[in-house]
Simulated assay, not measured.
Amino acid sequence: MTSTPTTARRSKITPEREQEFFDAVLEQLREHGYEALTMEGVAARASCGKSTLYRQWKTKPQLVAAALRANRQGTLVTVDTGTLAGDLREAARIAACTSGRDTRLMQALGHAVLSDAELQAALREALVEPELAAFAVMVERAVARGEITADHPAVEFLPAQLMGVLRIRPVLEGRDADAGYLLRFVEAAVLPSLGLTPPGTPGPTGTP
């Protein structure tokens, strides 16, 4: 019963105007962190009424999650190279496109990610679950092609490996996880863990 009015309201905001809202959110998030970010502050920066934001996104966590999702460049959903190794390399390239910006924004969220249940749920829905689903599809295709078995023990850790290395390199080395770094990680750690020997690498018997 309520879906039609909501749709009508949302249709009044152009993609360009919506991006202005998201830019205001990200600017405030980078400058002040999540706790200090307010709907009032975003509205003032975007020159709109606070009610406009609440009609569209209902809560601050939902607005922040939507802004972070819009900030992403590329998506794993469209990746399909024909092999699992190729898919994982392409996933690494996509992740590298926004690794620096995404890492800094996640750091700006601070401990709120762990302490705010509503924020956790919004981020999982907007950012995490779509990527987990994309990894699952990659694995399903690989199993169907006979590249790996469905019960391969390393499959469980694929998302944690690729998502984790994005966050930890800035902490360990003070540098973003760029494409070269992520591709080396995939070749040296991810593919071998799946039993997918990179091209040109000697196999167990010492032969290529």
Rank of each mutant, 00 (worst) to 15 (best):
L114K: 04
D87T: 03
L132P: 06
C97H: 11
A92P: 14
A96M: 02
S115Q: 02
S99W: 05
L114F: 06
E90D: 11
Q73C: 08
A122H: 04
L105M: 08
L84F: 13
T81H: 06
V128H: 02
D102P: 01
N71I: 02
P130C: 14
G100M: 07
T75E: 13
E131V: 10
E131P: 01
G110S: 02
D87Q: 01
R72I: 10
V77C: 04
A91I: 10
L114G: 01
T78S: 15
Q107K: 08
A121V: 09
R89N: 12
L88T: 05
G110M: 00
L132A: 10
A96S: 13
A117D: 08
A122P: 08
R93D: 12
H111P: 00
C97K: 15
E129G: 05
S115E: 02
N71C: 11
G82Y: 02
D102A: 13
T78W: 03
A112V: 00
A112R: 01
L105E: 07
A112M: 01
R89A: 15
R93K: 12
L127S: 03
T81G: 11
A121D: 14
C97D: 07
L132S: 05
R124A: 15
A95V: 01
T78I: 07
T81F: 08
G82A: 06
G74R: 11
L84S: 05
E131N: 10
L114R: 09
E125I: 05
A117L: 11
L114I: 04
V128M: 09
A112S: 15
V79F: 05
L127A: 08
G82K: 05
T83G: 05
V113C: 01
A122C: 11
P130G: 07
L109R: 00
V113H: 00
S99N: 11
D87C: 07
S115Y: 00
A96L: 03
R124H: 15
L127T: 03
L127Y: 04
G110L: 00
S99H: 09
I94N: 03
T81Q: 12
A126E: 09
A122E: 02
E118I: 03
R124Y: 11
R104G: 15
Q120N: 15
D116Y: 03
